[in-house]
Write a protein that binds this DNA or RNA. Structure first.
Lengths: 286, 286
DNA sequence: CATGATTCCGTATACCCTACGGGAACTAGG
DNA sequence: CCTAGTTCCCGTAGGGTATACGGAATCATG
């Protein structure tokens, strides 16, 4: 059984690998230089601008030369993404809330510095050190609460999905402001005709009521921020609550998930003390 | 003060406008035909496939002819999006939970039928009837709880963001499966090398513990679904809870938001009964 | 039949990615 | 110094994309 193994993993993990002995014509560039140049262009002008031709030109090299360093364009994008994820450098300690706040702050800062991240799909992300560092950090944050092992992953995934979703939304807004020259509020203002000419009051009673109540007076971006903070608060409260009364009240709902957990349920974080270092078993299906 | 008014609004709301008197050369096509053709192509082959040239070819018309019906490609995308949003046809009644469930089901169904929706940015969406119908439906669902007026929008936005985010993720997964020929699990399997050669156990103790506890045994798509349902449960519970004890416990946090609400706070849904039909005032900044 | 309105569309420009294959530049070993 | 092996560099060519512009075609009306 011949299995295809993608060429991207050694590139993503290139920092974990010792330098190869020099043989053959010496390269003019390095992968890191290519990646950082692409990131710099994308920061300034968006992901599309960081084309193979453009990156090569920036490095005073022919387009095709880049293909010695990177298999193809999508792989370059993967490398760019994992680079900035790795540079996010999550290392805050403290309580659950403090860690989540640190994660959120760093993530928003990352998307502000590199708004093109919002132009990259989040499905099947680059499996490099940056991505795994995020996973580990958020899981560790949730683990401080002492939740049952099987609940860590859903909780951590919910948190990172919520935070990332908001950061991406903000980044998209920034991108659009740059490409269109219009802020979100200016964009809305330009569409005032919607309310004057097209909006049907009778078909939208709730919106109209909120409107008349004056609850639409914040800008669109601010409303999104409000919703983000409101939702994050609910998620964190809910997760903390399910840690407090240890699955007694909600056990009925969770039974399906916890069914096959055979590890100590009273002290769920105990596994984190004595970690089995072996990763040799091949019965893992991620 | 000359204000630019976008040409897209009359197209989005074309169903609300009476037919124009026929004068000049009669058109061979209609906007609806163009839009539905583009949707059909995108359904089958993705958004990129629905290029101007391709849609025109499908209609046996020259590429440039489409520009009589649609100002440009982005506007065509807007029309496609609002078309399927409108066709989602949200009309379930019932309790808060029932309405949210209906909204979620219809939304997932929509993204399954039109996975290319995940390829379109959610920022600055088309302001057509479909988009507004969604807003109204979710707001009305939340309004059944009797929340204070100023809390309706954050709650509704949180719900729709969470549901949409999950539906988009599933759709992206489907798109990737089609373009790459690999399911998400096959994609992971192909990257088994990650665990064998690159994963650093000591740097990722929490992941390793979860691993050894066997809590990673579900497929990636299933894990995402778990996180979605878990998070949705927390959001709905939290929203319901804040409706039960009417802002007594959380009033400190909410004070900043509720500050300028001068409408009856004890019966917050009262505005929905007697709606002021006037939308003439121009002091609204959406 | 003339006029005005509207639709139709050919051409031209400027991007994008990358398969292929040959030449250039280096090291190691003799 | 010479040669083999290895690796890097890159020119060409082909098939995509969106749309500005201007003129021809086709209708209702007067």
């Amino acid at each position: 059984m011949e299995e295809f193994s993608p060429r991207i993993l050694p590139l993503l993990w290139r920092r974990s690998v010792p330098a190869r002995k020099a043989v053959g014509r010496p390269p003019r560039l390095t992968i890191d230089l290519v990646v950082s140049t692409a990131i710099r262009i994308a920061d300034a002008e968006g992901l599309e601008a960081a084309s193979m031709a453009r990156v090569a030109a920036e490095l005073s090299v022919a387009t095709m030369s880049l293909y010695t360093y990177v298999p193809s364009r999508p792989e370059l994008a993967d490398l760019m993404v994992d680079e900035v994820f790795w540079a996010r450098d999550l290392r805050g300690e403290g309580t659950f809330r403090e860690r989540v706040r640190h994660y959120a702050e760093r993530t928003f800062a990352m998307y502000r510095a590199h708004p093109w991240l919002a132009e990259v799909s989040r499905a099947r992300p680059p499996l490099g050190p940056g991505m795994l560092a995020e996973q580990e950090y958020v899981l560790a944050a949730v683990a401080t609460l002492g939740l049952p092992l099987r609940q860590l992953n859903p909780a951590a995934t919910a948190i990172s999905a919520w935070v990332t979703s908001a950061a991406r939304h903000e980044a998209e807004s920034a991108l659009l402001r740059r490409t269109t020259g219009l802020s979100t509020d200016e964009w809305w203002l330009q569409r005032g005709e919607l309310w004057e000419s097209w909006f049907d009051v009778e078909a939208h009673p709730t919106m109209t009521a909120i409107w008349n109540g004056g609850a639409f007076d914040r800008g669109a971006d601010e409303q999104a921020q409000d919703a983000y903070e409101y939702g994050l608060g609910l998620l964190l409260e809910g997760i903390e609550r399910s840690a407090e009364h240890d699955g007694t009240e909600r056990s009925a709902e969770l039974e399906g998930i916890e069914r096959s957990a055979e590890h100590e349920e009273t002290e769920p974080a105990a596994e984190l003390e004595g970690i089995e270092r072996s990763v040799e078993g091949d019965d893992r299906v991620p």
